[in-house]
Amino acid sequence: MRSVLKRYRVREVHTELNLTAMVDMFTIILVFLVMSTSTSNVQVAPVDGLTLPASTISKEPDEALKLVVTAKALYVDDEKIMDINEGVFDKSQTDAKDKNFIRPLYDELEKHAKKAEEIQKSNPELKFTGQYILQADQSLNYSTIKKVIYTSMLAGYADLKMGAAGK
């Protein structure tokens, strides 16, 4: 009698986790993630105050120097190099004789250009092309962007690729 009762109790506690619902959920998440996985060489680092303008172009960028300009700061390869006052460069940051020339940006880009040229010497396959990707906030005026492009050009970066958000 006791053994029968014991067997009955064991049967009663035997339960099985139903994984079907969980697999369903994971399948949906997996599809979403696969669709939105980036295969691009260049990643967009989230920067405060950066909203890229939308463009119909679908060309993906190649690896190049990243230059990010917002109304508040200027970054070269994810490193903040100077502050900007609501899209306006301070007079101390620009050259007295040439208002389009931004000294701190030029110095930083020159460093990068020299580094790239040194790499090219040791490995001729990695040629310095002067290519860079400009990621500027959509609300910035051309006066700000023009100064950045102009200074970059003088530092040897003349091949501008303008970053935009794909539609």
């Binding site: 994984l19 969980m22 697999v23 994971f26 399948t27 998440i29 997996l30 993630l33 696969v34 939105s36 996985t37 980036s38 691009s40 260049v42 990643q43 967009v44 890229l52 463009s55 172009i57 679908s58 060309k59 993906e60 960028p61 990707i133 990621q135 492009i149 050009m153 003349a158 091949d159 501008l160 690729k161 303008m162 970053g163 935009a164 958000a165 794909g166």
Partner: peptide, 28 residues
Amino acid sequence: MLDIMVSLIPMLLLSIAFAKLVVLDAPV
């Protein structure tokens, strides 16, 4: 199947891109 998914999801989460960057050529 669940094991595979549990492995894949963290990997995909790390490589997810919520913003797709495209470029417009404008050589100066």
